[in-house]
Structure formats: structure tokens, C-alpha cells
């Protein structure tokens, strides 16, 4: 018998601490450093404190919390864009992240070329991309504009292209940071439908969002992060309820 906690782990976070240095008017040149040597003391901001988490394969997890609570930082640590100051963090399986719109898009290149470029950043080969390109273009609904340079795209079109690539990479773990809000109602629904499919396929999804309705309807686990610690972890309805109570 397999119950929920018997599943394989997708992401482990152990005793993770992350500090950011706060620079007040960063003294960067030698002249400034010599003149203002006494000012260069920088404060350290403990953005994450001793985080321990296990995210299991097939879970759909929402990270919620107020601005500056450290949830985006946690997501960035999971993608290996930044590294913890202490503790360790391991992910198992192919990972795709969608942290900011069109990271790695080259404005002068066409949508089609950018699909190749963006997908190759996620570690796909040309053959992989050739197989998926029609699906990606179809999902983005950008058929008419796909050969135009990306700089001529609106932010909605940008999002559609970026999201279509990321969602068709076939990663085991998908990390998404508060970006879906840009798309229109139609595209948002389509994205959640696709995410629902990925969920059924047993993919692990972690999203950072302030759309609490989505958390309740779409996710099966919510983690509330407050001032760098996990304040509550569990059933989305309960966690969202407690979070809302706290905000009031």
C-alpha cells in the first residue's frame, strides 16, 4: 500500500539559510571605498531561516506569503540560480522554471528562433525542439506573428510564448513565479488546464502566487512563508484561511 508520504521525493530542503547583503549606496570604486570606508558596513538580511521541506513527486504546491517573506527566494534556490549560505537543497529530475517573462529571449530574433533559444536553455536538443515546435506555436496562439521579431510583441504575447515553451519542455518539476496574472482570462484558463494535465501526469509543480482562489482550487498543498520561516504547511483551504486571518 502506498500512501501519500510513501512517495518519492522531488525536492528536499534541509536547514537552508539565505542571507542577502544590504548595501546602502554601494561604494563600488576604489575612490569611494577609500573616502567612505567607514560607511561600507553593510547590514545582512536573513531572508530565509532554517527552512526544512520535503516536496513529493506529483504534488502541486503553492508558496504563499506577503511581499518580502522570502517565497521567491526559496523558488530561486530550488532552480539553482542562487545558492544557500548554509544547508542544502536537492532536486530530483528535470526541472524547468518560469520566474520572469521571457528570460533569455533575444528581442531582435523572431518568435520561432526564440523558441529554439529558450528551449535550449532548458536543455533541449534541436531534435527535441523540432518535435515540439508545432505544439508550442499552437499553444501560444501566435501563428501569425511567430516569424516577427519578439521586440514587436506585446507583454501578453511575450507571456504566451514564454509559457508555451516552458510548459512543453516535459520537465518533471515545474517552478512558476507569479507571472500568470499577465495573460488574459482565456489564456489563463488554458494554462491552468494544461497545468491540470501535467498534474495528472504526475509532474511536480511549485507556484508562488497571490491568487488565493487558484491555491484553493488547483493546489493540493500550501506552504505559508512568513518572515523567512515556514509558518504553516498543509491543506490549502486551512492554510489560506489562516493566512487571510493573519493579514486582516
Amino acid at each position: 500500500m502506498k500512501d501519500k508520504h510513501d512517495k518519492t521525493i522531488a525536492i528536499t530542503v534541509r536547514r537552508v539559510n539565505k542571507d542577502f547583503k544590504l548595501f546602502y549606496d554601494k561604494a563600488n570604486t576604489l575612490k569611494e571605498k577609500l573616502l567612505f570606508w567607514n560607511r561600507s558596513k553593510n547590514d545582512i538580511l536573513h531572508i530565509l531561516k532554517d527552512i526544512n521541506l520535503d516536496i513529493y513527486k506529483g504534488e502541486t504546491v503553492a508558496l504563499i506569503g506577503v511581499n518580502g517573506s522570502g517565497k521567491s527566494t526559496l523558488l530561486k534556490l530550488m532552480t539553482k540560480i542562487i545558492y544557500p549560505n548554509s544547508g542544502y537543497l536537492k532536486t530530483y529530475g528535470k526541472l524547468t522554471s518560469l520566474l520572469e517573462l521571457g528570460a533569455g529571449f533575444h528581442p531582435d530574433f523572431s518568435g520561432r528562433e526564440n523558441i529554439y533559444f529558450n528551449a535550449s536553455i532548458f536543455g533541449l536538443t534541436k531534435g527535441d525542439i523540432d518535435k515540439r515546435i508545432d505544439k508550442i506555436i499552437e499553444f501560444s496562439e501566435l501563428e501569425e506573428f511567430i516569424d516577427n521579431p519578439v521586440r514587436t510583441y506585446s507583454s501578453g504575447m511575450y507571456l504566451r510564448l514564454a509559457f508555451s515553451v516552458a510548459i512543453n519542455v516535459d520537465a518533471d518539476i515545474l517552478l512558476i513565479d507569479e507571472i500568470l496574472a499577465v495573460g488574459d482570462q482565456h489564456f489563463q484558463e488554458k494554462c491552468y488546464k494544461r497545468l491540470e494535465e501535467l498534474k495528472k501526469d504526475g509532474k511536480t509543480i511549485v507556484i508562488v502566487t497571490h491568487a488565493l482562489d487558484v491555491v484553493k482550487s488547483f493546489c493540493n498543498r500550501a506552504i505559508w512563508i512568513s518572515e523567512g520561516v515556514v509558518k504553516m504547511d498543509g491543506d490549502p483551504k486551512k492554510v489560506v484561511g489562516a493566512y487571510l486571518n493573519d493579514c486582516r
Partner: peptide, 9 residues
């Protein structure tokens, strides 16, 4: 720098 801040590779 811009890409490094946003994606892992």
C-alpha cells in the same frame, strides 16, 4: 547577467 538572474543553465 540578465539571463543568469532568471534561468538556470
Amino acid at each position: 547577467g540578465n539571463i543568469i538572474k532568471k534561468v538556470y543553465f
